[in-house]
Design a protein around this nucleic acid. Structure first.
Lengths: 210, 210
DNA sequence: CACAGTACAGACAGGTCTGTCTCATTCCGA
DNA sequence: TCGGAATGAGACAGACCTGTCTGTACTGTG
């Protein structure tokens, strides 16, 4: 069914949940998630995280072990929230066209909901900030992108178009490009263009019925 | 004519040229450019740069002043090389469709030519690694993206389509998305999808002549 | 030879970061 | 009331990074 490493991801997410049952640990993760995204991972020290969350340094290290693992937990949480939101939005639509449209709608709503200044895709940024391929966060980034790619594949297959894989690749490209374009040209313009592009690409993949 | 801040960018590029007339300074910039892209800006210290380029630390600081300015010079050089290559490739084509196709062809050739492991768009990565909006490199990133956006606008206008601005925004989205998709799915697949998407989007913008 | 310019080599200071450790306090169930 | 677990506060070590400084060697020119 699902995408790559779904079971493993679910196990890790569950582990995060267990950890965050502690209010202090929860506060640490919430604070770190905001700071890592807004100011960047490298620019956010553990001292800043503990100061902002009003927590002892030992509490952070007791629950997360290291900054690298805290970063991975931040990315896992963001990935989990995105997947839950996207799957729910898709499930609420009927018809394959509407379900695909829900993907860009969810992205739009997600970007609009960011009270913080929009700083692009957290996973692309994390990949840039974590050049070590062995960093625990890198696997979360790879899983996130592969899941999105395969999820668009599932949605495209339901359309009954000639080459669903090719369409999925194009929709993935538009999806990723919309995030970058939103930083340069603003959310509204970028999302409008992305929506129009997605519709045109789907139409172009329909079997010619004339 | 050109895009935002063209004159200023040209002045800075010329300043870089003058600086790099010194062989030692040239070696520093070349080494730093490879290391900054491959291993990331934050993970590359000035000690590593001077060790790899066989240069004294004072030489680096005499020519570039600070690491931040060295980063900006790295980004300016990369931006300049990309523009020169793209403009030359576009000039070699005849006809508006072929000129737009040259953009993705140039990107494809650029990615293929990277002997190093492909790590995505250097400018997106730099923006992620330099969260301070006042960093000298951030302006280079913004200039680079705005130039690409406006250059695609010029090329789109030559097509004579109904809404060239909307098409340019979509092509920009595909262009940026292709770079991200290339990291996830590989250059060949991503570029194939992007080329197909660009053609379909251009076709969809043509006035219906039926 | 004398001299000036440039570059190499490396020590050094000042700061920041991660991660460990100690000690006091709070809270909660037996 | 007692005891243990979790937490807050902060000192501390070790590593790393940027940027400065001193001293030496090489090169071309008069």
């Amino acid at each position: 069914m699902g995408a790559h490493g779904a079971a493993e991801a679910a196990r890790e997410a569950a582990a995060d949940e267990r950890r965050t049952q502690s209010p202090a640990a929860q506060r640490v993760l919430d604070t770190a998630s905001v700071l890592f995204y807004e100011h960047g991972i490298g620019a956010t020290g553990v001292d800043t995280v503990i100061a902002r969350s009003g927590v002892a340094k030992m509490t952070l290290y007791k629950h997360y072990g290291s900054k690298d693992e805290l970063v991975a937990a931040y990315l896992r949480g963001r990935d989990r929230r995105w997947r839950e939101r996207l799957v729910a939005a898709v499930a609420a639509r009927t018809g394959p066209e509407a379900r695909i449209a829900a993907v860009l709608d969810t992205l739009d709503a997600w970007l609009e909901g960011e009270v913080e200044e929009f700083r692009g895709c957290a996973f692309v940024n994390a990949a840039a900030e974590l050049p070590d391929p062995g960093h625990p966060g890198r696997r979360v980034v790879a899983d996130h992108k592969r899941w999105m790619r395969s999820y668009l594949g599932e949605l495209s297959a339901d359309l009954g178009v000639r080459d669903a894989e090719a369409l999925a690749e194009q929709l993935f490209t538009v999806f990723e490009g919309a995030t970058v374009a939103a930083v340069v040209d603003g959310r509204a313009r970028a999302m409008g263009a992305a929506r129009g592009a997605a519709e045109a690409l789907i139409a172009a993949h329909r079997p010619a019925d004339g």
